[in-house]
Design a protein around this nucleic acid. Structure first.
Lengths: 137, 137
DNA sequence: CATAATAGCTATAGATACTGGAGGAACACA
DNA sequence: TGTGTTCCTCCAGTATCTATAGCTATTATG
């Protein structure tokens, strides 16, 4: 039997977050000790590790709920899980593409900024005037 | 004189968001019509465009507050604005680096997923087992 | 000028995914 | 039995909006 603290140390998920996942229904309501403290088993640790890993990969709570639901039904087609992961991959690629554009603009702003007073500041002028941008973002 | 709707259309910032910026002190409290509706001038539009542009580039409200404060004092050194932009650039580069790792993992998960039942699903197995990952993330 | 359509107002709650604190109870160990 | 650590619930706060309800103002049309 693990306490919530044990579970937290074992998975790297903070205690309030574990309780939050319980509230959100991602983790089943834990059994309780005589004194009303949560007690866990190793399968809870595995489930929480799964959740943590998926969160680290940027899956939303909703997506994780679906993935957990899928893994509870071994005979369902794998395509469903694949679709969720592909969606996530696309969202990650979208974010990267957008951030690259921002990087380009910020790099331009900061590298051309050689004046010494705010009234000539390239950064501030760039922010005030979208036309100075080199790309759509 | 512009209504809040005009300002919204001119800048692409939604009406509740404009009111939110006023509440946060990024926009000055607008003048009011006889019937208590907000009325704006063109300098408000420019300020809001600045804010929008900075938000699109991922600056936080706090950073924008500093940038606006700086541009109100033309004699202050430009370095201060530069520092904020460089910080933002670094944060963008960090995010890109992290997302690239996620992309790698998700790509691995989805491209090797050729089985047809959840019980053999590579995506779900990968999420359950961090050791299958090719990189730290 | 009367009415209708559109746009605006405030206040409050919800979304997202947690995080932290207060005040008190339970547990582990000597 | 005492002491220190861990746990409990409840509530509030983070950041950045977004949406709803119920009401009022303005504008356009006939």
């Amino acid at each position: 039997m693990l306490t919530i603290g044990d579970l937290s140390r074992a998975t790297g998920v903070k205690i309030p977050t574990i309780r939050y996942y319980e509230q959100m229904g991602l983790m089943a309501a834990a059994e309780r000790s005589g004194g009303n403290q949560r007690r866990y088993e190793s399968h809870d640790r595995e489930r929480l590790s799964f959740i943590k890993h998926a969160r680290d990969l940027g899956f939303t709570i909703e997506a994780i709920r679906e993935l957990l639901e899928l893994s509870a039904h071994p005979d369902r087609p794998c395509v469903d899980a694949d679709e969720i992961a592909v969606r996530q991959l696309q969202s990650v690629r979208n974010k990267i593409a957008k951030l690259r554009l921002l990087e380009k603009e910020l790099d331009r702003m900061t590298s051309r900024n050689h004046d010494d007073q705010v009234k000539h500041c390239y950064v501030l002028r760039s922010l005030a005037n979208h036309d100075m941008c080199v790309s759509e973002h």
